[in-house]
Design a protein around this nucleic acid. Structure first.
Lengths: 257, 257
DNA sequence: TGAATAGTGTCTATAAGACAATATCCC
DNA sequence: GGGATATTGTCTTATAGACACTATTCA
């Protein structure tokens, strides 16, 4: 009885027309497909991203992630790299596919399915990608949830105290990026993309703390990092600090596991 | 110098035509978008999935995941549920988006970008979804890598010893599904989707071992599970076993964290 | 010398793995 | 009773957190 009921309910959802339309690839309207990239960087203990102010409708004047439509014979990741190179002169980034957003009304003009990516950028390249003449603008990310709860984030453009309005579902995309990177941080050497070639253990800890949004124990952080085999001491020391200088480390390519 | 060089190299990749074509949503050809679902179940210590034999070109006669094209006003997950309801009478499944595959030549006919999902099904519903008259066929999954290395898997249809050939990039999609579920198993109560309402701790351990592809320590598995707060003792006992019966447990909804 | 952080050593609490002992069911 | 697995308890080991102490640099 129970089974029967759920079957008949579902059957009504699947109209024959929808099924047939969807079955023949030539017989139905095709959506547009775009890519959007959530760029993330850590600067002075805060998370930042790069946004563009939309010049036209829809969402005119609102802020959006760099993105663009996928060409008919272009791989998805290539489209994301093209967008980054064109809009921010950013190349050779660590780029990972995040999630595909396909709500039928996420773009009021027409059906646009967007494949989102995230990229981690060190401070130097991040700031260089958004010079004053550029369309890309630095925005600080405020995460209104803890751990890997997920959900949209808030952004503050420049020094603004107020929350900037984001176009489309881009606040959700950024939130998904933060959630994903928090999850990866525990077991993958992600931090190296956010730091320069060499860094102290405290630098690394601060990056982790900023991404995770919570303080970490200094002792066990040091022990874990050194035990992970992902760090290599350079023998060099920090300079121009008014305290005992720390040793500089670099990330070492993980040997084939 | 170094910087200059990488810029000019990238600039050549971004042809102006590609950029302009991609910029205007109306000015370029749109891809087809489909969904494919990797159904996973655990039966007698092995991982299984459900496949369809393709009746037409391309990949005629090869095995494929259940899938279909996304209608123009249909959400992605709804498309996946429609396909499952239509092809296997499977409803109300735990369904999660996996990855989007967009290689320009993954379908020889035309550009098809596919958004893949995975679903976990308990043994009872799994076997009921593939009766003899049905198009869906049970196939065993052999994972040729350990841990979360990733990569395509091999499938064996029925009792066949030989590896069945999969259409498109579906071996990769299945591999991605296995990788994802392995990663989630450690910190999420995924197992309950693969078991019936009640189960013993050993049942649960065997499911975990099958998914992870490695044996687990019995003592610490028991302790971890009981300490997780995700299990609730029913007070009932296993029946019809020729040894001391174990207590039956059920999964309890995780309280809002 | 003092301020500030780096780096080391030790102790404790917690979780995992190993293993032994006892309990309970069916035959 | 014998076979088989469940369940509990204890011991050992590895890891994380806490904290005290020494080291080194610059002002």
């Amino acid at each position: 009885m129970k089974r029967r009921k759920s079957e008949s309910r579902d059957a009504s959802v699947v109209s024959e027309k929808a099924f047939l339309d969807a079955y023949d690839p030539g017989a139905f309207e095709r959506p547009s497909v775009s890519v959007d990239v959530a760029l993330l960087s850590v600067v002075d203990g805060a998370l930042f991203t790069l946004l563009l102010q939309r010049p036209d409708h829809p969402f005119k004047g609102k802020w959006s992630l760099p993105g663009g439509f996928v060409a008919i014979d272009e791989p998805l990741e290539a489209a994301a790299r093209r967008v980054l190179a064109a809009k921010g002169r950013l190349t050779n980034l660590f780029l990972e596919q995040l999630y595909t957003f396909g709500d039928p009304h996420r773009d009021p003009r027409m059906r646009v399915i967007t494949v989102s990516f995230f990229a981690l950028v060190d401070r130097g390249r991040f700031e260089a990608a958004a010079p004053s003449r550029s369309a890309l603008t630095v925005a600080r990310i405020a995460v209104p949830w803890e751990g890997e709860t997920g959900g949209p984030v808030e952004v503050h453009v420049g020094e603004a105290r107020s929350v900037a309005e984001l176009a489309f579902d881009h606040a959700e995309i950024l939130g998904m990026a933060v959630k994903r990177i928090r999850g990866k941080l525990d077991y993958t050497p992600i931090g190296f993309q956010l730091l320069g070639d060499t860094f102290t253990l405290l630098d690394l800890q601060r990056v982790h703390e900023t991404v995770l949004g919570r303080p970490l124990n200094k002792d066990s952080f040091r022990r874990r990092m050194l035990a992970s085999g992902q760090l290599e001491a350079t023998g060099e020391m920090e300079r121009e600090v008014d305290h005992r200088p720390a040793e500089l480390y670099r990330f070492v390519k993980r040997s084939a596991v």
